[in-house]
Amino acid sequence: MELVWRPLSTADIPVVAALYNAGEAVDDTGELLSEEDFTESFAEADLINGSLAVLVDGTLAAYGFVVLRDEPVGTHRVRLDGMVHPEFRRDGIGRELLPRLVTLARELHAARHGVMPMVACTMVESRSAGHVALCEALGFSADRHFYELEVALGESLAQVPIPAAYEIVPFSAARDEEVRTVCNAAFAGHWGSVERSPEEWAASFTNSKRFVPETSFLALANGAVVGFVLARHYPVVEEMTGVRELWIGDVGTLAEHRGRGVAAALLSWTLAQGKAQGYHRAGLSVDSANSTRALGVYERAGFEVARTWIDYGLPVELGELRS
């Protein structure tokens, strides 16, 4: 089987989306993506220098791309995304694709961030045995586990009162920069977390068509933002499953306001508003080793573990590129 390798282009978005969803139909990871979602992902990537299309007789058999952070600190975890079409699996394509992506990531990282330590990383759903085996065979290690949680937005939702001295208000574009700053402070010190630049923040939230300000809320103390719940909606999930899901992208509270029920109240408020707006289910992801005891907050709100994701990492030597 002769493989043709080239960079991806935006013209590939429809066929990449089709490939991805063909794979998802087999893998059942719950991560459904549309052409519009891939349009956003492609916009974040350096397609010329950081992506690959793998063709067999003119048919897209696999793809991959590299996602760098704007302002990494300490060790730069460079994300690798990609998939092999189910019809082309077990032919060694993934075993060749992943190392090529590592090489691209290494070159991009060195060009932008010099001698900063780098780890190539990729997220794997724990039941995807083939993907797990591939990562481990290539020397990746399971660095962290993340739980994907879900809760049905039914009548049994617990309503948590707003703590005294706080108020909950809808997200406002006028507070966008304040929320970004608070979010960066709230997640400082969390494993794998780095500050979001204004550009990354806009791409994830304010300029993203997936961001839902109507179900995103802020906690204020003395008029200043001290906590937040920021939500997204992916229409493709409803289109393919019939379930209207509210995805909780970020939940956070400034350290000095933790332990007072702020996050629980925010989450309760968001879930109630989500139900009122016709969502059937809410979902979120949490680090299994989160030091702020966030998992307990979510479990008390009714969330249960639906899947486990593994963040696989491979430290990459940069010595040859440092000259």
Rank of each mutant, 00 (worst) to 15 (best):
L104G: 03
R69G: 15
A142M: 07
R175T: 04
G313N: 03
E199V: 13
S208H: 10
N290H: 06
E214R: 07
A110T: 03
Q159Y: 02
S285K: 09
A43K: 07
E178M: 09
L97A: 06
L321R: 00
G94H: 05
D12I: 00
R112D: 04
R210P: 13
T270K: 08
P213Q: 07
L246S: 04
L314R: 12
S197T: 08
A165P: 06
R144N: 14
R281E: 07
D46V: 01
Y166K: 00
E150W: 11
L134H: 08
A294Y: 00
V56E: 14
G274E: 08
I310Y: 02
T39M: 08
T308P: 03
V243I: 10
S323G: 15
E125T: 13
V297P: 02
A17S: 05
F205Y: 15
T215M: 09
S268W: 09
P99H: 07
A133R: 15
L8T: 13
V78E: 05
R196S: 15
F211I: 11
L134S: 07
E31R: 14
N290D: 09
N184A: 03
C121N: 10
Q273A: 11
G30S: 01
W269T: 11
S268T: 08
T29E: 08
D28M: 15
R244M: 09
M83T: 07
R69V: 09
G302I: 09
F38T: 04
I310N: 02
Y147E: 11
D12K: 01
E299D: 04
A22M: 05
L318V: 03
M116I: 12
H109A: 13
A306W: 10
A17V: 01
A224C: 06
S172E: 12
L98D: 01
E40A: 12
T75E: 10
A120H: 05
I248N: 14
S9Y: 09
E2F: 07
N184P: 11
